[in-house]
């Protein structure tokens, strides 16, 4: 997965970069399955490898730029910034709970209640669904609204000019 990401950094051909980002998403989906998050893997595979790739290719076709401009030099400023940030973050992980530790703080607060009582309080055997739709209904409502707003935003940015052009074309046809 990391190898795919680094290749995406080096490649100049944008089509190849976008294809690699699809592959990267599939790898991520596999990792989610290994970590027991089947719902998430499902979404990632459908979204990352499917819809996002098509949209990016669409943008590429619209902007008609096959390859990126070549910058020969490695930019040292950003690189050192990235290295420092990475080092600080890795230092920060030294105190984190170990992978798969059942006593980690994440697992001690709300999650046990969801796992123990969702069957009697909500019903569906898939806990993720009952958390998503019932316990955290407000969150999901908000997220649905965000998706809605994003679609409206795309329409506002790209849609209107197009309608005017269509009207113009109609008028030209009529005359």
């Amino acid at each position: 997965m990391a190898v795919t990401a680094v290749f995406m950094l080096w490649l100049r051909d944008l089509v190849a970069v976008i294809m690699l980002s699809g592959i990267y998403s599939l790898f991520a989906a596999m990792i989610y399955v290994v970590m027991d998050a089947v719902d998430v893997a499902f979404t990632e595979a459908a979204v990352g490898a499917g819809v996002a790739t098509v949209l990016m290719l669409g943008t590429l076709a619209l902007t008609r730029q096959g390859t990126e401009k070549v910058h020969k030099t490695i930019s040292w400023g950003p690189l050192s910034l990235v290295l420092v940030t990475g080092a600080v973050l890795i230092y920060g992980t030294l105190d984190m709970p170990r992978y798969g530790d059942p006593n980690a703080p994440v697992h001690s607060h709300v999650a046990p209640r969801y796992i123990e009582r969702s069957a009697s309080e909500v019903g569906p055997p898939n806990i993720v669904t009952s958390v998503l739709a019932s316990y955290r209904g407000y969150d999901t409502l908000g997220e649905t609204a965000v998706v809605f707003t994003a679609a409206i935003g795309v329409l506002v940015i790209l849609g209107r000019r197009n309608r005017r052009q269509r009207k113009k074309a109609k008028r030209e046809d009529a005359t």
Partner: peptide, 22 residues
Amino acid sequence: TVTGAMVTIFYTFAAQPGGDEL
């Protein structure tokens, strides 16, 4: 909502001048 949003976004991209034949 998600179906509507994705298809709407795709249509909008495809309806751009020069983008009708993806």
